[in-house]
């Protein structure tokens, strides 16, 4: 596997907000098919890091490569078209559309106005939407407005939308926040199943969930990579312990589980 070229590579990426460096010479690379967890205390730059990859933010320095070509200067939609999908920290679904229509928008390989006006969804796509609705248990709600779903249902709908989009690289920001234990477990299973065929990067605070993923962990701190390795190794790294000790809440999260 190591011989493979990285699917995603960040080289010395730095982002500053008014003199505050949210990312400092961040280096990170993902092999194709890898499942990777990213953790870090609040303010470590996790969301900024996703913003840079998906084109929302332009780094002051450094470069981002996807399949060997730079993503800099590309718009969000172009990057999404290249095969990078993103789930947001707080669930973001289209409130005034039904879950089915939410999924139909995500699934479509067609994205120009003319395609949408004159081309319909094919049978395979419809089946996929139906299948995904069943997977996330929203068949009953398929025709209600998504704005009326519960928090957990929205989370699942958004994950389903990400899967429907079928990107090569999935960037998943806090997928289990507000989910029940059973749902959390199912989410972990889902992400594990997706890895291999897809490359998955998960940002999460829930340590039990991360352990469940059995994936290599990258620890971000103050905008750069503090250490990388399997969960057990990272957990015992003195630097990581020190960083997390600074914040009581996170320490509890680590010990709770």
């Amino acid at each position: 596997m190591t011989a493979l070229k990285p699917l995603l590579e960040l080289r010395d990426v730095s982002v500053s907000f008014d003199g505050f460096w949210a990312l400092k010479e961040l280096n990170l690379s993902l092999r194709p098919g890898e499942l990777r967890a990213v953790i870090g205390p609040n303010g470590a730059g996790k969301t900024t890091f996703l913003d840079v990859i998906t084109g929302k933010l332009k780094p002051q320095r450094g470069d981002v490569f996807f399949r060997g070509s730079s993503l800099l200067g590309k718009s969000e939609n172009q990057i999404a078209r290249l095969g990078i999908g993103r789930k947001f920290q707080t669930p973001r679904v289209y409130q005034n559309l039904s879950p089915r229509r939410n999924l139909e928008l995500a699934i479509s390989g067609q994205s120009t106005p003319l395609q949408l006006l004159f081309g319909g969804l094919d049978g395979a796509a419809r089946d996929r939407v139906q299948h995904l609705l069943a997977v996330v248990g929203l068949e009953e709600q398929a025709h209600r407005l998504a704005g009326g779903l519960s928090h957990g249902q929205k989370q699942w709908l958004e994950i389903a939308m990400l899967v429907a989009q079928d990107p090569d690289l999935l960037l998943v920001d806090e997928p289990v926040a507000g989910l029940s234990d059973a749902e959390t477990e199912r989410t972990a299973d889902l992400l594990k199943r997706l890895a291999g065929e897809h490359t998955v990067l998960v940002i999460e605070h829930d340590m039990e969930f991360i352990r469940n993923l059995q994936a290599p962990v990258t620890v971000l701190h103050e905008g750069h990579v503090l250490c990388e390795g399997p969960m057990e190794q990272v957990q015992n790294d003195p630097r990581v312990i020190e960083v997390y000790l600074g914040s009581d809440a996170d320490l509890e999260t680590m010990e709770d589980h």
Binding site: F17, D18, F20, A22, T47, T48, T90
Partner: peptide
């Protein structure tokens, strides 16, 4: 305006 407060 700058920073992470700009447009969630």
């Amino acid at each position: 305006p700058k920073g992470r407060m700009v447009e969630a």
